[in-house]
């Protein structure tokens, strides 16, 4: 008996699962290789690190690695790392805001200045670390002292009671400051690029309106530019913040393993004591970066 519906016509063929969801499944299949790849090469090793951090060659679950790292000075390493992060973010964002504001204007030679401002992207981190280790050498003196002498600042320093050569890396604050300067030199360009993109989204009419209302350059910056750049600044702060926590070769070449930073300690512990103790410090590092990641997800999601 032939199947017919109420109107005497054969029923419409039922769409299969594949036909109904093809438009959504096919694009997802295209994305799968990337997800498998980052899962296996990024998230799985990160999970492994956490597992290793609770093991030793003989014990399968212990917090020994953490208590040992605390005794070795874990809190100092975290403190040093956070000082570098704060210093580098302050310097990079100050500089990048200035550069982006300059690039928002039009003047002769603007493209040359724009190129100069992104050149450090083209210098490998190790090369930047090396050249700054010659500017602020551990042995004292170096190109920084040459500049101080050439500009006559040494007379000023003598009055302040500082004599050349300056041992840049011998005290903790000064050593961290040189790392902050070097890192900001290398990475300010990335912030500039993000902020320039932000500037492009601020309507020019807002500035004209502000000028008509009598706002000078500073109030325009405070009430038009900063609110307009807010989302870009927050995102760039989080991205750069996470990457500052990961600062490694630059610092290692410049100041070696003192003052200690988390990443440098992971590296030296891995080669001196093996994987377990290093994994504990590595997990702490991951935890700090994790805070930035959570903020990115919350803030990024809210913007949608």
């Amino acid at each position: 008996m032939a199947v017919v519906d109420r109107n005497g016509r054969p029923p419409a063929p039922v769409a299969t699962f594949w036909q109904r969801h093809k438009a959504r499944i096919v694009p997802f299949l295209f994305v799968v290789p990337s997800l498998v790849y980052v899962g296996y090469f990024a998230f799985y090793p990160a999970a492994q690190t956490i597992v290793y951090s609770f093991q030793t060659p003989i014990l399968s679950f212990t917090t020994y690695n953490y208590t040992a790292s605390v005794q070795l000075g874990l809190y100092t390493w975290i403190g040093n790392t956070l000082w570098v992060v704060l210093g580098a973010l302050a310097l990079q964002f100050g500089l990048a805001l200035a550069i982006a504001s300059i690039l928002a204007r039009s003047f002769r030679g603007k493209s040359v200045f724009a190129t100069v401002a992104i050149l450090p992207i083209g210098i490998a981190t190790v090369v930047a670390g090396y050249v700054f280790s010659q500017i602020f050498p551990a042995t004292g003196g170096g190109y920084a002292d040459s500049v101080i002498t050439a500009t006559g600042l040494n007379h000023l320093l003598t009055i302040a009671g500082v004599s050349l050569p300056i041992y840049w890396t011998h005290t903790v604050p000064l050593a961290l400051a040189t790392v902050v300067i070097a890192d900001s030199w290398k990475n300010t360009s990335l912030v500039v690029i993000i902020l320039v993109a932000g500037y492009a989204t601020i309507p020019k009419a807002l500035y004209q309106a502000a000028a008509v209302d009598g706002a000078g350059p500073f109030r325009q910056f405070r009430y038009v530019t900063l609110p307009g750049l807010r989302n870009f600044i927050v995102m760039a702060l989080l991205i750069r913040g996470a990457q500052e926590v990961n600062i490694f070769q630059l610092a290692y070449i410049m100041i070696g393993s003192y003052p200690q930073l988390l990443t440098v300690q992971v590296y030296t512990l891995y080669y001196s004591t093996g994987i377990y103790l290093a994994s504990a410090v590595s997990t702490v590092l991951l935890g700090i970066v994790g805070l930035f990641i959570v903020l990115v997800i919350i803030i990024g999601g809210r913007g949608r």
Binding site: A23, R24, V26, P27, F28, L29, F30, V31, S34, L35, V38, F41, A42, P45, A46, T49, I239, A242, Q243, V245, N246, F248, T263, V266, Y267, Y270, I275, A278, S279, S282, T283, L285, L286, V289, F292, I293, V296, I297, G300, G301, R304
Partner: peptide, 30 residues
């Protein structure tokens, strides 16, 4: 694939890729 997926799923996946860029290299390298 991302350009053809729904906006919410696409956003989720770009976020995952983005997080990968933030995970400390030294943590996963070992």
């Amino acid at each position: 694939g991302l350009s053809r997926l729904g906006p919410r799923l696409a956003y989720g996946i770009t976020t995952v890729l983005f997080i990968v860029n933030m995970v400390p290299s030294i943590t996963i390298a070992i």
